[in-house]
Amino acid sequence: MANSTLTKQRSEALGSTVALKSAMAVTGVILVLFLVVHMYGNLNVFAGQAAFDNYSHHLRVIGEPMLPHGGFLWIVRVVLLASVLIHIYAAVALWRRAGAARPVRYQATKRVQRSYSSYTMRYGGVLIALFVVFHILHLTTNHIAPGGASDSPYERFVNGFQPEFWYVTLFYVLTVIAVGFHLRHGIWSALTTLGANRQSRQRSLNIIATAIAFVLTVGFLLGPLSVTLGLVE
């Protein structure tokens, strides 16, 4: 080590644990920004079928005629897919590393500082990944259509969360809450990783992380629950 040049050290540091979690932080921020926009789109369901379907249609024609039909959406999808893959790759690499770093476990363990949120990041992440696959098959491609397939995004949404498909709603509710917990620690962690954490700012960072996580959780729960409870039809 002592003799290796800094050029080699730099390239090594690009693959370090700190670089990995920075990649997680940046991709995480991209995904949180997407969730904010996604939540806004979902809330259009309360404005009725025309507004919701119009919003969905508009997403496909953004940038026309400079971009082809659906072009903007595909750019976003590619960025999101890349973000998800990088996020998962870094998570798996760090998870494996953490497992190897403590080959003999403690017989007695005690939680001093860790929260439910920070302690379940990895399991929550797995659940969210599975949910995303189901969610895309359900409401985007409509291959899974509990209440009947439709060309209208609004009808897909309303059909999918009818009271008789309470288990679909339940699954959504549970995973959206898991997303909330994931974001609670994730936003705090991302800001810390990217260097924003100072002792004097920790209170604000915690409030910001909790507030964003809470707003997104409630925002995503409102639509499906309203359909299931018959408030939107």
């Binding site: 080590m1 800094l6 050290q9 730099r10 090594e12 540091a13 370090s16 644990t17 700190v18 990995l20 979690k21 760090l94 590393r97 953490a98 190897a100 770093a101 403590r102 001093v112 500082q113 860790r114 920070s118 302690y119 990041m121 620690h185 705090w188 962690s189 810390t192 990783t193 954490n197």
Partner: peptide, 21 residues
């Protein structure tokens, strides 16, 4: 910082996830 982080990783420590324990 580059050298110390590299050595940290080379010693088989795990990565930080900002939990705070």
């Amino acid at each position: 910082v580059i050298k110390m982080v590299n050595q940290h990783d080379e010693e088989d420590f795990g990565g930080c996830t900002n939990i705070g324990e």
